[in-house]
Design a protein around this nucleic acid. Structure first.
Length: 509
RNA sequence: CGGGACGUAGCGCAGUUUGGUAGCGCGCUUGGUUCGGGACCAAGAGGUCGCGGGUUCAAAUCCCGCCGUCCCGACCA
């Protein structure tokens, strides 16, 4: 293990300028992931992967509940498949890893790619699977009775990014991608919105990250989509992070892969498509939304370990008694369905264990020592409190029975408070803005965040805003997502043209 | 691919200006004392100084070439 940086008191909000380094420190200290020997790729360590597994389970349950099933499609996409849909191919062209040979050869003791083994057609490592999946669906769909087709796949994809950052942007990442086929446009649109709601529900109720649901502007749409819906969260430096997307693809992919069906009237029609996905980027969102200077903070619903027990003793006699009690407490909590870790490692100071488990984000710690045995009490310490920097406020000694019965309610409370804290932070860092001057001043300041502005600009004008202020239109929010004071009509902040609804502008990851 | 920095023990670094026995902190091993918020003492193990060539009695250090990593730009879940 590497050197542990010694931090003083915890501050809930790290300073924005320290943000990249702070983010990497949290990941390192929590042992979530590290850069690999392969350029741009990430090694997800056991603790980081455990969090991803919990995310997968929660998401998968929701996919199943909405009628979807899982399947698996190939990693390799023939180049000709990828280029069938023109916009799609253009959108991903600059970041494709391509397999061109299938054999190595030893020449003069050196192993090299065998030039004789060139593939007839290059294979692209999937940056996303629309094209290979729609080529497959062609054979699966004949009649309206085959629809809707509701399939999800869990897999890895590769996008050859120039600059990468752990979890947020890596050359290879893990994700799920849903690909559905429908008989009508209305049904496909309904699916697109339904899955956006699934993502929003997951983000808010499991990750405890409040999100804005909205549509992307045409320039920010997924390559090949008619409409891209997204959820946007705010990180602790005020920047926006796109946390999930749901696309309405119309008949674009059905046409390019020739997927048709006979409707009830016996007429041949192209099917209507959707696709939607979230990735390991969500782990990055989790880190950047909740963590503090002591390390990772996890919402209880995603914590691989709910409770860590740290026994405290001075001699063998105390050790025996304390460990016996610790074992009992662990067993009783496990019987409640909680994930419990008894940290009985020897030769490590209890304080060192506290820091280690806090860095890893374990929500609740129970300390058991001789004094607790005497008094029949337990020392319960929560990972965070809404009272900032107050270590005492996080810690309480409770009678044993009361303490054990209180852990689950405490976890529920923490889950709720974590969401509430994030929501209040976001709202505090959001502002309704009406003039370009006010906009400029807001984003020149240290408390910049979300700006609710009227916008009627085109693609070029969006670029202009991006160049001048580093801001982009994150989304055109769904009407019910607008704050109460942002529901007016007005004039575009740049062009002065009339606008019926405000959009969300911010700097973004 | 353009601009900048850096490659020395598992991790973080000093040493390079001015060439002369390979160093420090953390971590690791062993023994002892400790243990309610990051312990201390003692003894140890661990190196092709990124790679290749050159200069020199002598190169981590100077020169040439290559490779790699990180940061800043264009791309992006």
């Amino acid at each position: 293990m590497s050197q542990q940086p010694k931090t003083e008191t915890a501050s809930v909000t790290p300073r924005a300028q320290d943000y990249p380094q702070w983010y990497l420190d949290v990941i390192k200290r929590a042992e979530l992931a590290e850069n690999s020997a392969v350029r741009g790729c990430m090694v997800i360590k056991p603790h980081g992967y455990a969090i991803w597994e919990k995310m997968q389970r929660e998401l998968d349950d929701r996919f199943k509940a909405t009628g979807h099933v899982n399947a698996y499609f190939p990693l390799f996409i023939p180049l000709s498949f990828l280029t069938r849909e023109e916009q799609h191919a253009a959108g991903f062209a600059k970041e494709c890893a391509v397999v061109t040979h299938h054999r190595l050869k030893s020449i003069d003791g050196k192993v090299v790619v065998d030039p004789e083994s060139k593939l007839e057609e290059p294979l692209v490592i999937r940056p996303t699977s629309e094209t290979i999946i729609w080529d497959t669906y062609k054979n699966w769909i004949q009649s309206y009775r085959d629809l809707p087709l509701l399939i999800n796949q869990w897999c890895n994809v590769v996008r050859w990014e120039m600059r990468t950052r752990l979890f947020l942007r890596t050359a290879e990442f893990l994700w799920q991608e849903g690909h559905t086929a429908h008989a009508t446009e209305a049904e496909a649109l309904e699916e697109t919105y339904r899955m956006l709601d699934v993502y929003a529900d997951f983000a808010e109720n499991v990750m405890a990250v409040p999100v804005i649901r909205g549509k992307k502007t045409p320039g920010e749409r997924f390559a090949g989509a008619l409409e891209t819906l997204c959820i946007e969260g705010m990180m602790q430096d005020g920047k926006a992070l796109q946390m999930g997307t749901s696309h309405y693809l119309g008949q674009n992919f059905a046409k390019s892969s020739d997927v048709t069906f006979l409707n009830r009237d016996g007429k041949r029609e192209y099917v209507y498509a959707t696709s939607w996905g979230v990735s390991t980027r969500l782990v990055g969102a989790l880190i950047m939304t909740h963590s503090d200077d002591n390390g990772l903070v996890l919402p209880p619903k995603l914590a691989p370990i709910h409770v860590v027990i740290v026994p405290i003793f001075k001699n063998d006699a105390e050790k025996t008694k304390v460990l016996e009690e610790a074992g009992k407490v662990a067993a009783e909590l496990k019987a409640q369905g909680l994930a419990v870790k008894l940290d009985d490692r020897e030769g490590i100071m209890p304080g060192a264990k506290y820091y280690e488990w806090e860095a890893k984000g374990v929500p609740v710690r129970i300390e058991i020592g001789p004094r607790d045995l005497e008094k029949g009490s337990l020392c319960i310490v929560r990972r965070f409190s809404l009272i900032e920097d107050d270590r005492k406020a996080r810690k309480q000694f409770l009678p044993r029975t009361e303490a054990l019965a209180g852990v689950k309610p405490l976890l529920d409370t923490m889950q709720r408070e974590l969401f509430e804290r994030a929501r209040q932070f976001r709202d505090k860092r959001s502002r309704v803005i009406n003039t370009l001057e006010a906009f400029e001043a807001y984003f020149a300041g240290k408390d910049a965040g979300f700006a609710w502005v009227h916008w009627a600009g085109n693609h070029e004008q969006e670029d202009e805003m991006s160049k001048r202020f580093e801001t982009t239109v994150r989304c055109i929010p769904l009407p019910d997502q607008l704050p109460a004071d942002a529901r007016d009509a007005g004039k575009c902040i740049l062009t002065g043209q009339p606008s019926s609804q405000r959009v969300l502008m911010a700097r973004a990851y």
